[in-house]
Design a protein around this nucleic acid. Structure first.
Lengths: 196, 196
DNA sequence: AGGCTATCTGAACACGTGTTCAGATAAAAG
DNA sequence: CTTTTATCTGAACACGTGTTCAGATAGCCT
């Protein structure tokens, strides 16, 4: 089994992940070859197969790692007892910040789903739904408390997340707006969109 | 020059476009071969080169055709003299309907940009910006008239479009909601998000 | 009928693909 | 120092890639 005893390079695995992540995000999964990834790491293509059974599983592990980090980071912040408005604001700010910090992971997780096997696709979709359910719960809580007016919380969830994801397509740090300004603008729109 | 006189098959060009569109949307540009497209049409791969100089240009023509249809359809509907609220509502309804009617084109136009050459990429981006500018003009008109409160019309434009594009990822005709219901739900959210 | 020409075939070219594996390498364990 | 073991190399396998082009084909025009 790989990696059971320390040996020449305990950091090859992470370096493969980093190289694959960057290349997949830039050129697309199908357009990147195992030799290209290996070249970036400084090994031959065959060596990659000590770390992944095949190319598709390498992609899957990257996606799953990203989604699990997302869920863990979110769970560590959420305060289910708090005011719905506060929870929603925190969700918006968290989502924007977390995704802007990981543009490559986000890009891959949304664009390369069709390159997964059926089971792996289902696994990623399940993780994504868990994340969406977190937002939906906030919206339902706000509706129940009479603070939000949302005719269809499921659709509103998808609409809010789609809107927030859009930030990743245009935001560049050092650009016209600071991260804090972006957070404020989007929070204003979300707040108003669900307002009672 | 091709297609100057009617001959055995005046419909091969469109059939190639339709096959390429479907396959690119389903498997991705890089994962679809010219032989696969040709097979769908019922010709050999070499025959495709009577209709496109290369694979990438085939993709580009599909994208450009889609964007030009989008702009033309929008221009045919917009009424610059009308009330900003009416114009915005029409934009929302138009955008949802137009995009839901062309899921493959939309998918390709948003996912395969990185497979275009630099000039072709710039051409598509210019068309997209023209479309976005149409919405931005509506928002600015509404702000000037004191009907909307939008701190940054450029960002609001991108946010609204991102939100509306999200519909394509989940809507299925015959599902829980009718197209009219979807239009109403999204229009409510957009209206409130930009409300004065 | 005969020539013209747009279109298509089928083979070829040069190269890239994911994956496998016997043998080399070098670090850790005894 | 010797053995063990994880790791890597380098070549090979079987096949697929976009693209080109000489030659065949068949509909249109005179």
């Amino acid at each position: 089994m790989a990696r059971t005893q320390g040996s020449h390079s305990d950091i090859t695995g992470p370096r493969i992940d980093a190289a694959a992540l960057r290349l997949f995000a830039q050129f697309g999964f199908a357009a990147v070859s195992m030799r290209q990834i290996a070249g970036e790491v400084g090994v031959q293509a065959g060596a990659l197969y000590n770390y992944t059974p095949d190319k598709q599983t390498l992609l899957f592990r990257l996606m799953r790692g990203h989604m699990e980090e997302l869920l863990a980071a979110r769970a560590a912040r959420d305060a289910p007892e708090a005011d719905p408005l506060d929870r929603l604001r925190d969700f918006v700010r968290f989502h924007i910040r977390f995704h802007l910090e990981r543009p490559d992971e986000v890009f891959i997780a949304y664009m390369e789903l069709r390159n997964l096997s059926e089971e792996n696709f289902a696994a990623i979709e399940a993780l994504r739904r868990r994340y969406e359910d977190g937002l939906e719960a906030i919206l339902r809580q706000g509706v129940a408390a009479g603070r939000f007016t949302v005719p269809d919380p499921k659709i509103a969830t998808l609409a809010v997340i789609a809107m927030l994801n859009g930030v990743n397509t245009w935001y560049r740090s050092g650009g016209r707006l600071t991260l804090a300004e972006v957070e404020t603008i989007y929070w204003d729109m979300v707040r108003k969109a669900v307002a009672a």
